[in-house]
């Protein structure tokens, strides 16, 4: 199991977290290569269905990241998203999904270092959990 590498989906808003990831890259900051990035215009674009669907298709972890509160390019996108996630996360835990499978963060365009830390943390958390099973659909 030691060499098992989790697959993690990172859904990043284009204005902050994606730019933060970019900065981490150009600054050559090292972080685990376990994430697959999907760029969205805003964290407010993230439908909980995207998260559920990713869990179903076998991602071991999901990270959703957007701009810090107050910094949303569209003013309030991340505030609305935050309410959504504030309900989704406890609900997933409630039905028995491991809390660390789905995580949320705010990372700005200037926080390349932080982006690397977030990805490192999520990867470690998910590695501890092992491969996702609970909502994975077997086809």
């Amino acid at each position: 199991m030691n060499d098992w590498q989790p697959k993690i989906l990172a859904i990043l808003c284009t204005w902050c977290s994606y730019a933060g990831a970019d900065l981490a890259g150009v600054s050559r900051i090292q972080y685990p290569p376990n994430i697959r990035v999907v760029k969205v215009p805003c964290s407010g674009r993230v439908d909980p269905l995207f998260i559920m669907k990713s869990l179903q298709s076998g991602y071991d972890g999901i990270l959703v990241s957007g701009c810090h509160p107050g910094d949303c390019h569209y003013m309030s996108g991340n505030f609305v998203a935050r309410r959504r996630f504030a309900v989704l996360k406890p609900l997933l835990e409630f039905i028995g999904i491991e809390p660390d499978r789905v995580q949320f963060s705010w990372v700005s365009a200037g926080e390349g270092e932080r982006f690397a830390q977030v990805v490192t943390k999520v990867t470690e958390d998910v590695k501890k959990l092992g491969p996702a099973k609970r909502l994975v659909k077997q086809v």
């Binding site: 935050r82 504030a86 309900v87």
Partner: peptide, 16 residues
């Protein structure tokens, strides 16, 4: 309705 509203300083304990 709750999900079409927000307060800026809301609790965000679930954010890393």
């Amino acid at each position: 309705p709750a999900m079409s509203d927000f307060r800026e300083g809301e609790k965000q304990d679930f954010i890393m």
